[in-house]
Every structure is written in structure tokens, then in C-alpha cells.
Design a protein around this nucleic acid. Structure first.
Length: 586
RNA sequence: GCGCCCGUAGCUCAGUUGGAUAGAGUACAGCCCUCCGAAGGCUGGGGUCACAGGUUCAAAUCCUGUCGGGCGCGCCA
């Protein structure tokens, strides 16, 4: 509907421009807004106000000319000039009455569009290190990323969902070493677990699997393992040097094959857990992309060569640096360490280059806000490699701060004190958790009250929306029990009897759905959709309390039932995009 | 110190990209089931849009500065 009004105004503007009333160079698509106040009609444009200055005319006078130039339309009941020069449009009843059968015929497709025209967009989200189970912080990125992907698909983009698996690097070595040390403890060794090791119970579980399946095949004496390793921090040493020493011992004593086996065991156990967890959270991927594969295929070395031959690298203090400051970063960044190993950043350059070479028109990374300082260096690298940095958008999701008993919950993966996503899901359900996570825009810090979320009370807005859906289903169930036949062809129903203010409000809300979908998809703002669904549910609940649907008057009954059927369809469509179920009964 | 995000009702948050009288939920007070599900509806109070300037027909929204909160500033990932 909005688009049609926009077309009308644009055509009027073109006419004014051809008459010389407004300068031709100011001719653009007009801005059309929904009105806040129904006394202002359905839509309004500020075109006359904006153009008054360049045209050198009084805004109301210009508005008058604009209204005069509007083509006739059966959509528009009337248009009025108001206030300083707004033009308000009131739609005809017929415009709304056509909407109901339109919704019911399009069904699942109602609200969807082809704005994206099949352009390829990649969305990468979560990508948490496989060093432990996902925690509630990752949950926000998971819910947000998957909904953004679904929304983009709904408006016509071809979406590729991807998880970048950080299966290389020091953190993974720390995990493998942690597993091995726990295994040694299961072999009755007495040792002091490193301060910097992973201490969660899941490490014990993986160690237990190793011990159960392979007995003492990986056993070495603790004294031998800790021989020559620098002291740990609690013992007055350096925890980083201590853990690095232990990693070195693990590699040396186990040898390549056995070390690799422990490493893979840990990685796969955790990755399987993450996959399973996300899948149960309704989060799916088209691809799990391995960081290690970039090293093994030589892609990392190739990208370093490209940067070197472009003259973007230099040596300093034994390391190889990328001149990211040439592209707006604060500092230059190391790509090859003094010890000859490439950095995580080097892999990430190769990874992002690969994304662009795979032919995506747009690449969206969804990161935790704590990584924001990382954005300029990745963009810098892409600029150095060929000016495609603008295809990359990094969306930063702010932290969800957890509260329990009114106090902040401290989280640390290392100490093992964290609430897992799995735990959250089990306690509040995937529906409530997902809805809750995307209810706020991503750049907003979020207070996540665990007690409230766990309470399963009606305070959680997801129940309110789901209840509207269940209530409609219940009405239809009642109709069936009363042997009431519902007209099966929505086009055969006359909607002119829908004269109540509540009915008009509901129809207006339904008409807005495609606009909301477009807005939330193009701006990556799922919260617009959650707010809309709440409003739609309110409109329905209000209507339900004010009027009966299963009434004697057959014509009115049929019209009302079609209206609530259309409402149910839009509730389903919206909840579906959020990955939240629409239950028939609760 | 520098950079990014945030500051709107007691609390948690929206605010259609600069529009008309700043809105929801929650909490609090009162009312509504012989009636399709009360997990609901209706009514009410509650605001210096952090503060100070600036830009213009118009600012919660844009610019500058100040204050307050969060996060980041590794040859970790």
C-alpha cells in the first residue's frame, strides 16, 4: 500500500517539475510515512515541506499544487493538507477489504518480497571458539544472526549461513593439553592443574572418554610432564609461560600422532556439542568453515605473499607487520610472529578474501561487541587487497548482562562458572529465549534477568503473542464443535459489514506487516518484528474482548472469521521468521 | 589517554532514519467472566528525552562540547 501511495506522489512531483514549479534536480522518491494519529488518515508525506525552500514557495501553496497533480486512484478516499504543509491520505475501505483475501491466498508468502532480487549475501554468526560449550552470551548472536538471515531471505536475498570454526591456534592447544592433564589425573596422577587451563566439567568428560576407550595408552608420569616447565602464577611464576611449557611437553611426550588424536578428540566432542545445541535452538548453517583448512590449503601463505608483493608488509623485531595504519587503523598489525607462526589475523584476512572470492554481493559478520577494535584491521586488509571493503558489514552485538537474584552473574569460560545456552534453553525453552534475545536492537546493551526468564510467567511477551494465536485456533475449534461452516473462499465474503473501530485497527495493523518485514530485514532489526507482533496480538485481544465472532448473523460472522483467520496467518508468518513456534493450544 | 556502543516514565525498552500532542510492557490503584480460553480487556497517575550550546519551517533524532555507564586498545583467538 505504501508503495502505491509513493508512486502516486512521485508521479505528481514529476508533473510539477515538468511545469517548472519545482526544480527538476530536486526530484526524488517522496518520503511516505504511516501516521501516528488516525485523525491524520493512513499515510502522510512531507514532500511539500521539503521542497518549499528549493522551489521558493510557501509549503501549503506547494502542497495544494501537489494535490491537484495527483492521479486518480481507487485506493485513496481523500487527501488533505494539514499543519505546516503535510499531505494526509485516507485510504478507501475497499483497499482494506481486498487485503483479507490477499493474506489468506498468499498464506506463508504474505509479506515476503523480492527486493533483494536474488543477490547473494553471506551471514556469518556465532563462530565461537570450539574450546567449550556455548554460553548465554553466544545465544544472543545465534538468535540475532539466524533471524537476520531468515529476514533477508524473506525479502528476496539468496542467503548463505556460515560458522567459522577456529580449529587452529593456541587456544585449541590449551584445550588439548587441558584434556590430557585431566586424563592423567584419571590415571591417578597427582598434579596441580594450570591456572590458565580449561577447568569446565566438559573437559573431564572428554578425558574420561579417552581413558575409557584407550586405557593408559597416553599416560606419562606427572614428574616427567612438569619437568622443566616454568612455574605457574600461583607459585610465583607466569601462567602464560607455564601453559606454553605444558603444551610443549604434551607435543613432545605424546608425539605428533598421539597429540593430534587428543586434539581432535577434544575439538570434535565440543564441535558436536555446539552443532547439536544450535540445532535444538533452531539455528542452522549451510556451511561450517574450518580455519585450519586455510593454512593447509596454503591460502594463508598466498594472502601474505599478495600483501608482501603489494608492498604492505615490513619486518620489525623479527616479526612481519601489515601496514594497516595506511588504511585507517590505529596500529600496524602482526601477520607472522617472531617464531614464524602466522597469526589469527592472517587467517582471518585469508578467510575474508575467500568470502569475497566466492562471489557474495554482500558479506555480513555478526560479532560480539568486544571485538569491535578488530573491524578496522580486517577492512584495512580487504582495502589493500582490492577495494572491496565496502562489501563487508560487521554487525556488533552488545553483551547480554545476566542477572540472578538481582545481582550480575560473573562469567568466565576458564573457571567454568557460566550458564550454558543448553541450560538456558532447557529452563526457559527455545521459544522464549529466542524471542527475548531479539527483542532489542543489537547495539543496545541487554539486561537478561534469568529469574524472570526462568519463571515461565506471562511477563514474557512471547506467551502473549502465542496466546493470541492459540486463542484464534480455539475460536475455530469452537466453531467446528457448533457445526458452523466457515466460508472457504475468502473472495466470496462481503467485508463491508466490518465497521467497528477495532476491526479497522486490526486491518490497518495487518496491512502494515509487509512494511515491517522490509524495514526489519533491510536494517537488520528483528526487534521491529517482535514489537509489531506484540501490537498485532494486542489489537486482536482487544477485539476479542469487545466483540463476539460466533454470532447468528451469518454475513458478519463470515467476515469476522476471515479477519481473524488472516490475523492468525500473519502471527504465524511473523513468529516463523523469529524461529518461534505458533501453538494451537497452550 | 584514544576508539566503539549506550543514556527516553520507578524498572526494562520502542520511537517509521528530521515531522504533527514522546509511546509500549512491567510495577502500582480501580473495574470487567450466566458470554468464542481472564496467559485476556478497560480506566488512571507517572517525563527537564543525561546536561549545555548550535544547525532549520521543524530536533529525543543531525553537529560540537561536558558528565555518567559498558566494552576494547596482545607477536591470544
Amino acid at each position: 500500500m505504501k508503495k502505491q501511495i509513493e508512486d502516486l506522489v512521485y508521479s505528481a512531483l514529476q508533473q510539477l517539475a515538468s511545469q517548472g514549479l519545482i526544480p527538476a534536480e530536486t526530484l526524488t522518491r517522496p518520503k511516505i510515512d504511516r501516521t501516528k494519529d488516525s485523525s491524520h488518515g493512513d499515510f502522510a508525506t512531507n514532500a511539500a515541506l521539503v521542497l518549499a525552500k528549493p522551489a521558493g514557495r510557501n509549503p501549503r501553496e506547494l502542497a495544494q499544487a501537489l494535490v491537484g497533480a495527483l492521479p486518480a486512484s481507487k485506493l485513496v478516499e481523500k487527501c488533505e493538507i494539514a499543519g505546516p504543509g503535510f499531505i494526509n491520505f485516507t485510504l478507501t475501505q475497499d483497499a482494506y477489504h481486498e487485503l483479507i483475501p490477499q493474506i489468506l491466498q498468499q498464506g506463508h508468502g504474505f509479506g515476503r518480497s523480492d527486493l533483494g532480487a536474488g543477490r547473494k549475501v553471506q551471514v556469518e554468526y556465532v563462530s565461537a571458539n570450539p574450546t567449550g560449550p556455548l554460553h548465554v552470551g553466544h545465544g544472543r548472536g545465534a538468535a540475532y544472526g539466524s533471524v537476520v538471515a531468515d529476514l533477508l531471505e524473506a525479502v528476496g536475498y539468496q542467503v548463505h549461513r556460515e560458522y567459522y570454526v577456529n580449529d587452529a591456534g593456541r587456544q585449541m592447544d590449551i584445550l588439548a593439553t587441558s584434556v590430557w592433564l585431566r586424563y592423567l589425573e584419571l590415571c591417578d596422577a597427582t598434579l596441580t592443574f594450570p591456572a590458565n587451563g580449561y577447568k569446565g566439567d566438559y573437559v573431564w568428560d572428554i578425558a574420561a572418554t579417552l581413558h575409557r576407550d584407550h586405557g593408559e595408552a597416553y599416560r606419562h608420569d606427572a614428574a616427567e610432564v612438569f619437568d622443566g616447565v616454568p612455574a605457574d602464577e600461583p607459585a610465583g611464576g607466569d601462567k602464560e609461560a607455564h601453559i606454553d611449557g605444558l603444551i610443549g611437553q604434551a607435543k613432545k611426550l605424546l608425539g605428533d600422532n598421539r597429540y593430534r588424536f587428543v586434539f581432535e578428540l577434544g575439538l570434535n566432542a565440543i564441535l558436536d556439542d555446539i552443532r547439536d545445541d544450535l540445532s535444538l535452538f533452531g539455528v542452522r548453517y549451510d556451511e561450517w568453515y574450518s580455519e585450519r583448512s586455510l593454512t593447509e590449503s596454503g591460502a594463508v601463505n598466498r594472502v601474505i605473499e599478495r600483501l608482501r608483493s603489494g608492498g604492505y608488509l615490513y619486518e620489525k623485531e623479527g616479526a612481519l607487520w601489515f601496514r594497516s595504519t595506511d588504511f585507517g587503523d590505529d596500529l600496524d598489525r602482526v601477520v607472522v610472529r617472531e617464531n614464524g607462526q602466522t597469526t589469527y589475523f592472517a587467517s582471518d584476512i585469508a578467510y575474508h578474501l575467500d568470502k569475497l572470492e566466492r562471489g557474495f554481493d554482500r558479506v555480513i559478520d555478526i560479532w560480539g561487541a568486544d571485538h569491535h577494535g578488530y573491524v578496522p584491521r580486517v577492512k584495512a586488509a580487504l582495502s589493500a587487497l582490492g577495494n572491496q571493503a565496502e562489501k563487508l558489514d560487521v554487525l556488533l552485538v552488545q553483551f547480554a548482562i545476566l542477572y540472578r537474584n538481582g545481582a550480575k552473574v560473573q562469567m568466565s569460560t576458564r573457571s567454568g562458572e557460566f550458564v550454558t545456552l543448553r541450560e538456558l534453553r532447557k529452563e526457559v525453552g527455545a521459544d522464549a529465549a529466542r524471542f527475548f534475545y531479539v527483542m532489542r536492537k543489537c547495539e543496545q546493551h541487554m539486561d537478561f534477568d534469568l529469574d524472570l526468564a526462568k519463571s515461565q510467567s506471562s511477563d514474557n511477551p512471547v506467551y502473549y503473542v502465542q496466546y493470541a494465536h492459540a486463542r484464534i485456533c480455539s475460536v475455530l475449534q469452537q466453531a467446528a464443535e457448533q457445526q458452523i461452516v466457515i466460508e472457504s473462499d475468502p473472495r466470496a465474503v462481503d467485508y463491508h459489514c466490518l465497521n467497528e473501530a477495532h476491526e479497522q485497527a486490526l486491518m490497518t495493523r495487518l496491512a502494515k506487516y509487509p512494511e515491517i518485514l522490509e524495514l526489519s530485514a533491510l536494517n537488520e532489526e528483528p526487534h521491529q518484528l517482535t514489537h509489531y507482533l506484540r501490537d498485532l496480538a494486542t489489537d486482536f485481544h482487544t477485539y476479542y474482548n469487545a466483540h463476539k465472532f460466533l454470532i447468528e448473523d451469518e454475513a458478519l460472522r463470515n467476515a469476522r472469521l476471515q479477519l481473524i483467520l488472516a490475523t492468525r496467518q500473519v502471527l504465524r508468518n511473523g513468529l516463523g521468521l523469529l524461529g518461534v513456534s505458533a501453538p494451537d493450544k497452550m
